[in-house]
Design a protein around this nucleic acid. Structure first.
Lengths: 125, 125
DNA sequence: CTAAAACCTGACGTTGACGTGAGAGGCAAG
DNA sequence: CTTGCCTCTCACGTCAACGTCAGGTTTTAG
């Protein structure tokens, strides 16, 4: 599978895939002419990388943690890094939940306002 | 209250506060010499701004949504924006939760590995 | 064989929320 | 008065994950 096909299957850009390789997150066999070829497993790997990026991890963190996320083994130091990231994600979830709750409150209140007071700020409608 | 005190009370940098003002998220009275002065309520406002930034909203989004978050009134268009942001946050929470779950799985497995197989990859240890 | 599509390697551009000086003025204390 | 800290306004620097363009090679479709 060449880079365009991998991009199509994963939904990430060709540029991004080359960037992942540059960051040592993804490897490829090269054909004699220099074109990248990937095994089928690369799809899962790219999706995993995307998941970790989406969780706010940096390339560097992903590079460190990917091996043990893939094969489930880790040194005590890696376990520490894993826990640190986990806690960071946990905190971020907390931030997002409270922001979402605040928006929900506003949405509920404003919706009620719109129904009672006909339009914008016109409680006598 | 001057800018340094507001920074100290909210935990955000002086530079960030000036940036918020530049983005019209925060206003200040100016003394004759040009120095910024803030009322006590500015503390809450800055914390609210921080909460929304932490939820991944841009300055522009915060600028649009801050008024109705503060006073609970919104036009239908604003309600739409609010819902859009809410859904985005919701999706992001989903991403974070699945990433956290994956890390939890790895942490559990790797911890078990460490206990069974004595150190790193030495099951006979 | 030829044209189009896909691929390659640089290398510079983008975006947002600030960080970081530079250089100058303001303000309470001794 | 002056020492020292706080504040002011530019204005350039940063960082990460790519986007995008240039200029050239390779593969594929007809």
């Amino acid at each position: 599978m060449r880079i365009g096909a991998l991009a199509a299957r994963t939904g990430v850009s060709v540029r991004a895939l080359r960037y992942y390789e540059e960051q040592d997150l993804l490897t490829s066999r090269r054909s004699p002419s220099g074109q990248r070829h990937y095994p089928d497993g690369a799809v899962d790997r790219v999706e995993l990388i995307q998941e970790l990026y989406a969780a706010g991890l940096s390339s560097r963190s992903i590079l460190e943690l990917l091996p043990c996320v893939v094969d489930g083994e880790a040194t005590p130091e890696l376990l520490d890094r894993l826990s640190t990231e986990r806690d960071r994600i946990d905190g971020q979830i907390g931030d997002l939940v409270s922001a979402r709750d605040r928006l929900d409150t506003v949405i509920t209140a404003a919706t009620a306002n719109l129904r009672t007071g006909r339009h914008c700020k016109n409680p006598e409608g």
